[in-house]
Simulated scan of single mutants.
Amino acid sequence: MRGSTRWWIIKKTAKLGASGIWNVEFLDLWLGDQFCSLAYSISNLYFVGCFYTRYGFGFSAHDPQAQEAWSTCGLTSTKSWGWYCLLGVLPYFARFVQSLRRYRDSKRPGQLVNAGKYGIGMVEHFVYCYWRYQGINSYFLFCFAATVNSLYACAWASPPAFGSFDCHDMSVFQDVMVDWSMCEPYARYPLLRRDLVYKSSALFYYFALISNLCIRFIWLIYIYLDETSIELRTFVAAVLEMLRRVQWNFYRVENKHLCNMAEYRITRELPLPYQFDADPKEEEAEIARLQLKKRLARLS
């Protein structure tokens, strides 16, 4: 990346870390959602730091001494699971604070509903880390928290909605599913919006709706209680979540663009079929001079 691009990313990420202090723009909440899908990678930063500080850079991944890192630096370690939980919760906490700040600025109750989604996300990640550390005793608690979080997130982020929360000032019960604003009445394509940017690829909208719902419940792969493959299943779940976020980006940004058009927050100036002979500033100055001459004539 170019130096200006790197500096831009650093500034926006730093602003995300100070969420709630400044007004929240669309870019801030969009970037926060990207980090929420990277919670697995962020939480594993502790393992990377722990491994290289304890074992250095000279060990092979198959070295028996390096294999001890799974017990000393892994999520099941007594000293480590808290760090995994803290790092993974940070993106959800940032979005939680952003939602509260947006509620303070707009007084829209829907922002409290949005804050609740990220609050439940924090609870689920904490319960997951606690289950991996504690064992089978807290497994059912994790399943309950994950079910509530998935249902909440699907209802809010994927769409049967009458309109977008960013576009219309509706009640909470009408705008509770807002990110994509699908299932609008009288749409050309059933279950989609009336206005589509990617009209030639309508089938991908249906694929996104189904895949988004399925990946929201990807935690079901943890039901198989064989601990020998838990790391692999966790990795697969994290990759699928990142793929879900990639397709989410297209339709979320598209929905935001359509909302801006509906609210006339963006316009495109069209050229007039004729030209002005005089410069507008010069014409205004000439009118001002004529008015001044009239006033002086009256006073004299």
Rank of each mutant, 00 (worst) to 15 (best):
T76V: 11
L90C: 04
S60K: 07
S60H: 08
G88I: 00
A66W: 10
F26Y: 11
Y103S: 06
K79V: 15
S43M: 15
G56K: 04
A39N: 05
E68C: 05
I42K: 06
F93M: 10
N23A: 12
L27Q: 14
L86K: 04
R108M: 06
T78W: 11
P109T: 03
W70H: 12
F93S: 03
K79I: 14
P109S: 05
E68F: 01
L27N: 10
L75G: 04
S106F: 01
D33S: 10
I10L: 15
T53V: 07
S80Y: 02
A115S: 06
R104M: 09
K15H: 15
W30I: 09
A61H: 06
V24T: 15
R6Q: 12
T53G: 01
Y92P: 02
Y52L: 07
A115R: 02
W8N: 14
T5R: 02
A18F: 13
Y40D: 04
G32Y: 12
H62A: 10
G121P: 01
F47E: 08
I9S: 11
Y40V: 04
D28K: 08
G82M: 14
V24Q: 11
G74E: 07
D28V: 11
I42N: 04
V97C: 08
G17L: 13
W8C: 11
M122V: 00
A115L: 02
L75N: 01
L112H: 01
F26K: 02
K107M: 02
W70P: 00
I120M: 00
D28H: 11
F47A: 05
W83A: 13
V24H: 08
Y40R: 05
A61C: 03
G110W: 03
F59L: 13
V48Y: 08
Y118W: 12
T72I: 08
K107P: 01
F51Q: 02
D33N: 14
K107E: 06
L38A: 12
T13D: 15
R6W: 12
S77H: 13
G58M: 06
W30H: 13
A18E: 14
D28Q: 12
L112V: 05
A94H: 11
G17W: 11
K12C: 15
G49F: 09
E25N: 09
I9C: 14
Q67N: 10
Y52P: 00
P109N: 07
I21R: 14
S80L: 03
T76Q: 11
V123S: 01
V123M: 02
G20N: 06
R6H: 04
D28A: 13
C73P: 02
Y118A: 01
F96E: 02
G82L: 13
G17T: 05
Y52G: 00
V97T: 11
V24P: 04
T13G: 14
F47Q: 06
S99A: 13
A69P: 07
G82Y: 10
F96K: 01
V89F: 09
L45W: 14
S43R: 05
